[in-house]
């Protein structure tokens, strides 16, 4: 006899799935990977592969044998976390350090809270910041990029040097005028096309923006978080620059240097650790923008965007509590 299935409406389901969203982000990261291989050679591939594989292995072991929630690597979130962490690392980082970073990211940052959807902090950033504080020397000896058209770099044969932000904070400490400093740095076209040192994902602003546009088109993310971060950074640093151009650098420098673009587009938009409502997302973005500039200019570390995101992650529950979406018919109710 025919057994009818009975359930509540809706009886039709959309085509969204966790996998689709996660792989959407991974696809958006591919142009950046290509750009970084071009500039950093084998190192970019070695670091990315190590991070992705170890992330999948850790996730598999923990979800299957410790949490016993079945195998969850299929949803792509572990691979994504690994890849994002790799993009936050220099391309010459020793393999054992990468594995420790991934361990912290996946095991402590994500699975210890119960797996996907439960972690309060962005796991990739937890791993990155852990490495940055524990092994500051290795984590800040950035390779100097060299385009593959000149020489295709091997994993270890890189020359290291400071990043733009490192140069800036050095200059600030020495009391150098920012006007003079900004003449020393490469022009913005060079910065956007990648000829600056930094971690794997910080290279090539054009590739980052291409990924951003792809994710917007696929509706993986909305514009609210990245745009609010970037515009806050721009406005805040512009105000500072107007106050004292000798002491503070021009706003474009902050926008395009370091991990600003990468973090705004890929790290801050992590679903689990960002607010739910559009209003909340804008507040979150503004907070990250302000904190980043504060840390960059007055903090001990030259780069502050990771710390800013982690700090704002902690405020997400309270943002969700107070930043509600506008209810239908609400304005009239209050009158």
């Amino acid at each position: 006899m025919l057994k009818l299935i009975v359930s509540l409406s809706p009886h039709q389901l959309g085509k969204n799935s966790v996998e689709k969203l996660m792989y959407g982000v991974i696809i958006a990261l591919i142009p950046i990977l290509i750009a970084s291989v071009w500039f950093y050679g084998w190192g970019a591939i070695v670091v990315s592969l190590t991070a992705v594989i170890s992330a999948i292995v850790f996730e598999f072991l923990i979800s299957k044998y410790i949490l016993k929630i079945g195998n969850t690597i299929g949803d792509g979130s572990a691979a994504l976390t690994g890849l994002l962490l790799a993009f936050n690392l220099p391309s010459n980082l020793p393999i054992w350090l990468i594995i420790i970073g991934v361990f912290v990211a996946i095991v402590i940052g994500k699975m210890s809270f119960g797996g996907l959807g439960n972690n309060p902090f962005n796991p990739a950033l937890v791993g990155r910041v852990f490495l940055l504080i524990s092994w500051p020397v290795q984590m800040t000896s950035w390779p100097i990029p060299s385009p593959a058209s000149e020489k295709f770099l091997g994993y270890t044969d890189v020359v290291t040097g400071p990043t733009l932000l490192g140069q800036m904070s050095e200059a600030m400490r020495n009391g150098e005028s920012m006007k003079v400093f900004s003449d020393r740095i490469p022009n913005y076209f060079e910065i956007l096309t990648g000829s600056v040192g930094g971690s794997i994902g910080e290279i090539a602003g054009f590739a980052l923006i291409a990924g951003f546009v792809y994710m917007l088109a696929r509706k993986v993310i909305t514009w609210h978080i990245p745009i609010s971060i970037l515009s806050t950074v721009f406005i805040f640093s512009r105000i500072l620059w107007l106050v004292n151009p000798e002491k503070f650098i021009i706003p474009f420098f902050h926008l395009f240097s370091g991990g600003m673009l990468f973090s705004a587009i890929f790290m801050a938009t992590d679903y689990v650790t960002s607010p739910m409502s559009k209003k909340g997302q804008i507040v979150f973005g503004v907070g990250i923008g302000i904190l980043t500039i504060v840390i960059r200019i007055w903090g001990a570390f030259p780069e502050g965007v990771s710390f800013a995101i982690l700090l704002m992650n902690a405020t997400v529950p309270i943002i969700n509590m107070y930043m509600k979406p506008k209810r239908f018919g609400e304005t009239i109710k209050e009158k």
Partner: peptide, 14 residues
């Protein structure tokens, strides 16, 4: 088309 798919944890994608 009538079977629901397996329930996964909320990823707070909004």
């Amino acid at each position: 088309e009538s079977k629901r798919r397996e329930v996964k944890p909320c990823i707070r994608c909004a």
